[in-house]
Design a protein around this nucleic acid. Structure first.
Lengths: 158, 158
DNA sequence: TATTGTTATACTCTATAACTATA
DNA sequence: TATAGTTATAGAGTATAACAATA
């Protein structure tokens, strides 16, 4: 038997009583928690609602109008190629427009439509309601602490 | 403009200075943090190392020998069908065996091999080293707090 | 009828590489 | 040469539905 850790202890009948190793790992807990949150996000936004990544993209386009696709991909931490389908969906739904900028005809600046800004405001309210309900058993302090600790992990981004 | 929240404020030159909405959402921060952790996990375990879900499955098989596939799937929170490829890989690598149990010939109890137990002990050490390094800027208290808060979210499992 | 393990299948998310049009 | 957007493609990871064997 390998080294004993604080979560394992020998009982007098030689049975090993354990908290499973996995529960010690931050990565495992992060994954399991995220599965719950994203499932509830999808349920809350409904069949025709935004997927998390589409909501995130729309959020940034509304808050940073004229962002380029490359810039948006960088902000989201995904590849440019992966962003195309997301922007396609938002454009197809009439929530943003690809526009050419004078001076560099390569770039496509993304501009939210009025419909897009309105849809985002509604979706944001729905997401806030979903998080308020799902995390009702966490205090405001706990939620702030959690976000702060996740931000410390996110400091390793890039 | 929709309602102002505490992260948005009007400045005297009419510019909206913001912490982007996304940063307020626990779900978004969870996702971004998990992406970092799982990427570092894979980097740390290397080309021929275990993927996170394979490591998790092996961990449970070692700690709960004779667990059935259905039981393991339930513990991992995935479907039985999704477990087949994971168990196939672990069996192919000689780390566990599917064994029939007397009394119910439907079930396949999963038993770690000696090689599997040893491989798990080594992988567990590698994962601990990866987390220790990646989370070196978090105190022990912070790590415990984080796991506790994630556990509160995980209380919504099932 | 219900359950275990399995297969077939599809869908989402993501990445890599290569292409085009510009710069 | 380098960059922005795009396309083609592939690989994880996961789910649903149906099947055979067994209970």
């Amino acid at each position: 038997m390998a080294s004993l850790r604080n979560t394992e202890r020998q009982t007098d009948d030689e049975t090993l009583v354990e908290t499973p190793d996995l529960e010690e790992f931050i990565g495992y807990n992060l994954k399991r928690a995220y599965v719950i949150v994203q499932a509830d996000f999808r349920r809350a936004l409904g069949e025709d609602g935004f997927a998390p990544r589409v909501f995130s993209a729309l959020s940034l386009v509304v808050q940073y109008p004229n962002v380029t696709q490359s810039g948006l991909a960088r902000m989201l931490g995904i590849e440019r190629s992966g962003l195309v389908a997301i922007v396609d969906e938002l454009e197809r739904r009439g929530l943003l427009k690809r526009t050419h900028v004078p001076g560099d005809r390569r770039v496509q600046a993304l501009v939210p439509t009025d419909k897009g800004a309105k849809a985002y405001a509604e979706a944001r309210a729905a997401v806030r309601a979903h998080e308020d309900a799902l995390f009702a058993d966490l205090s405001g302090d706990e939620k702030a602490t959690l976000i702060g600790l996740l931000a410390k992990i996110r400091a390793h981004e890039g």
